[in-house]
Amino acid sequence: MNDTIEQIQTKVQFLTADEAIGKIPEGSSIMVGGFGFPGMPRHLSRALVKREELRDLTLITNSLGSVSILNDLFEQNRIKKVVGSFFSTNKELVKANREGSVEIELLPQGTFTEAIRLGGAGIPAFFTPTAAGTDLARGKETRTYNGREHVLEQSLTADVAIIRAHKADKAGNLVYKKTAQNFNPAMATAAKLTIVEVDEIVEIGELDPDKIVTPFIFVDIVVKREEV
């Protein structure tokens, strides 16, 4: 049994934020968890902003508000595209999109969530009635099912997911805290490299198995959040 635990522990790396962000190559697509501030990996986000050579990025995140840490990436001209549901409060980002310097792919929030979930499940596309008949469906394939028009949406995957959890054990299993869970578990499954920021790291066996939401198989790097 001890050999099995040791083998599990070697699958996940425990690094600093700077070391973890150092694994991300330029031009990456990056999923970032969080619904506003709840569930946002702010410690990792600061490290991402600090690494100035990282450019030509695609961000997949629910929103990119003008007060977000990640907005610094936009202000430093390091983002080529953002994919998400809520950008209207960031007037400069909207202006940049209209001027053609940043691409925005806007998805209804339910579609956004489902696209990530299905991306993690290996399903490349899906039909949904959401957005049918609106500008968001323009240029997309549609079909009628049960007398209702549906839009074909592409599932979402990424090179990297940067997420937030409450606790991790030394195998990499994750539990979340209330609504801070939001998009994080789905994003953990939909990226080639998953980096998670946690408040606490505990021994294997300390987490209640019934409360583990993300199993270690989806986690590559764990970073303990620093108090700031």
Rank of each mutant, 00 (worst) to 15 (best):
M1F: 10
M1H: 13
I8W: 12
I8L: 15
K11I: 07
I21E: 05
K23C: 04
K23G: 00
M40V: 04
R46K: 15
V49I: 12
E52T: 13
T58H: 01
I60S: 01
I69Y: 10
L73W: 01
F74K: 05
F74T: 10
R78T: 02
F87N: 01
F87L: 04
K95M: 09
K95Q: 12
E99A: 12
E99K: 15
E99F: 08
G100D: 00
P108Y: 04
P108W: 04
G120R: 07
P124Q: 09
F127Q: 03
A131T: 13
T134M: 06
L136F: 06
G139N: 10
G147F: 11
R148I: 15
E149K: 15
V151H: 07
V151N: 14
A158K: 04
D159E: 11
V160A: 06
A161V: 09
R164G: 10
A165H: 01
A168C: 08
K170L: 14
A171W: 09
N173S: 03
K178W: 06
A180K: 07
F183K: 02
N184Y: 02
P185W: 11
A186S: 14
M187T: 05
A188V: 05
T189R: 15
A191Q: 05
V198W: 11
I201F: 01
I204V: 14
G205F: 01
E206A: 11
F218R: 02
F218P: 00
I221Y: 10
V223Q: 06
R225I: 06
